[in-house]
Design a protein around this nucleic acid. Sequence first.
DNA 1: CAAAAACAAGAGCACTGCTCTCGACTGTTG
DNA 2: CAACAGTCGAGAGCAGTGCTCTTGTTTTTG
Lengths: 231, 231
Amino acid sequence: MPSAPQTARAAARAELTRAILDRAGEQLAETGPAALSVRAVARDLGMASSAVYRYFPSRDVLLTALLVEAYDDLGAAVEAGDGAARPRDLRGRWRGIAHALRTWAHEHPHRYALAYGSPVPGYAAPGDTVQPATRVPFALLGLVRDAQVTGRTPVQGLRVPAAEKASVARVSAFTTPALTPAYTVRALMAWQTLFGAVSLELFGHMAEAVLDPAAHYAQVVDQLAADLGLS
Amino acid sequence: MPSAPQTARAAARAELTRAILDRAGEQLAETGPAALSVRAVARDLGMASSAVYRYFPSRDVLLTALLVEAYDDLGAAVEAGDGAARPRDLRGRWRGIAHALRTWAHEHPHRYALAYGSPVPGYAAPGDTVQPATRVPFALLGLVRDAQVTGRTPVQGLRVPAAEKASVARVSAFTTPALTPAYTVRALMAWQTLFGAVSLELFGHMAEAVLDPAAHYAQVVDQLAADLGLS
DNA sequence: CAAAAACAAGAGCACTGCTCTCGACTGTTG
DNA sequence: CAACAGTCGAGAGCAGTGCTCTTGTTTTTG
């Protein structure tokens, strides 16, 4: 167990680490990932830029820390959306998940872009980002699993060839009991559609097409619920 | 009509403009949009960086030119994929469109990211990018229109409320004859799913989940064809 | 042929990520 | 208690960026 002075020192370090993260997060929210500047963060905190490098060895590491926080924050929001409906109300839970995703994306567009937009050049997401990134898909898969165990089936399931079954086997095995191939494919498609709808809208590709994005998203969400057999 | 010297001068200018675009395109393919450097392009072309600014007034304008080229190139690829199948073979055309999209994205990941990834910080796509960006959705809508005129219907069409009909009316009216609300929503969903599937895979969000991305994409494409009533 | 416009080059400004060195301070240990 | 090792903050500095301004040259135009 560390002695008291050491703890005080560690606490001060944690405090400053937190302050750097907070200020970097604000800057991220204001101007986006690529414009995040270590020097600007240092300026705002009244310290030399070189001092920041004692806490984050590079800009990419700082960005990664923000990325992990974003994944966790979004994951928590989606899980809350899932939990807002009664467990048996599958469509309600689905709507909760889907609309939590879109709402969070609109509230934190730059963090969403950081997490799901094009990867920053030359930046490869390190391993510690994988786990927090799985929270959203996990919530979705848990819901589909519940639909499956209550005996529902997705509409017009296409025959899933053996090769594809094997390809998505890891996803199927994420839940207990495992998902059927048909449900696994439908769940992946639903996730792709949600992500596509949110991203296209957020990145401005739907502005010319859809007048009321929220209403359209609701329609898509409900149609996906029907396709998943949740209604 | 311009005189001969003027034409020669204009031709030289067009040539150099083209050379800058080509070199910038290579750099884009190598290191991605955010790493594109006007100075590096100038170096490679053996000219001063300030000279490049006579041809492109800012880095963003240069990036926009590359963006327009990317949209056009992808649009042409998708239209070729559409035209590869017999006009009456709706599912073949659908597969051609969908796989042309994914193939192009994998051949030009950075250009795809430039077009459909998170917008570069502080960069708003100007109006001249809108028209070329519409080629892909147009190809898709044309196909759905053909499906509609041959009397097919999407599976399990959800009731489309009047508000949503109005919201997507602009999309419906893109084709002649106009799309029904049910088909319009299904077409938008198909586009969102395709885009989501390609982006998630390309940006590395599926690596942990799907072993054979090409096979999975093919499965998704065929399921979407079924949902659209193309089979 | 002279005026005007277009052009390429260079210097320079303000900014970035990052490294290195320096002195000051803290906590541990002999 | 004193010496030592480790941490910390600050500053200078390097190499790079987008972009502007000036200077001199070339080309086109009236």
